[in-house]
């Protein structure tokens, strides 16, 4: 494939749509954990909150405030669409699947039934410098979720 084709494969319409119209953006309450992740090489940042069900098994909400490139912003948007409403176990499996896709250097064929809009990121895997952009919010979500499940955190609300 030519570089131009690779480029077009990365900047799919779906990605650019999510970039311009990010889903679930903005910080909301309640939440049990808030994390701040940065990409130290480029400065992309995300502040992300996770709210789980009382028994800690369902992702009730993921809200975020992020600044970064089209790939990192679209990834945050797609990630929230995928994990909100899912069981924590299923969401963690999705995270693994997405991670495999991103680390596959373009050799992994994604399953649209599983990853939905996430398949649009398949082209990113061919640009090693951009993989971390696509993973930033996923890593933040996993970190926040791990903090809740490991500490049995209680919901936070500021009033």
């Amino acid at each position: 494939m030519t570089q131009q084709a690779d480029l077009d494969a990365m900047y799919q319409e779906i990605i650019l749509d999510h970039y311009k119209n990010p889903q679930h953006k903005g910080l909301r309450e309640p939440y049990e954990a808030e994390v701040h992740h940065v990409n130290p090489t480029c400065g992309d940042e995300v502040t992300l909150r996770v709210h789980l069900s009382a028994d800690g098994t369902v992702v009730e909400d993921v809200s975020y405030d992020a600044e970064g490139c089209s790939i990192s912003q679209a990834a945050a948007s797609v990630m929230t669409e995928l994990v909100i409403g899912r069981s924590v176990a299923d969401a963690l499996k999705l995270h693994e699947t997405f991670l495999e896709l991103m680390q596959g250097k373009g050799t992994v064929e994604p399953d649209e039934d599983v990853l939905e809009d996430g398949v649009a990121f398949a082209g990113v895997a061919k640009f090693p410098a951009r993989v971390k952009c696509a993973l930033l919010s996923w890593m933040a979500w996993k970190d926040a979720t791990a903090r809740i499940t490991s500490q049995g955190a209680t919901p936070k609300e500021t009033s």
Binding site: Q3, L7, M10, C42, G68, S70, I71, R130
Partner: peptide, 12 residues
Amino acid sequence: VHPHDVAQLLDS
């Protein structure tokens, strides 16, 4: 356009 995306397009 974010600087990352500018640099990516310029590189192409």
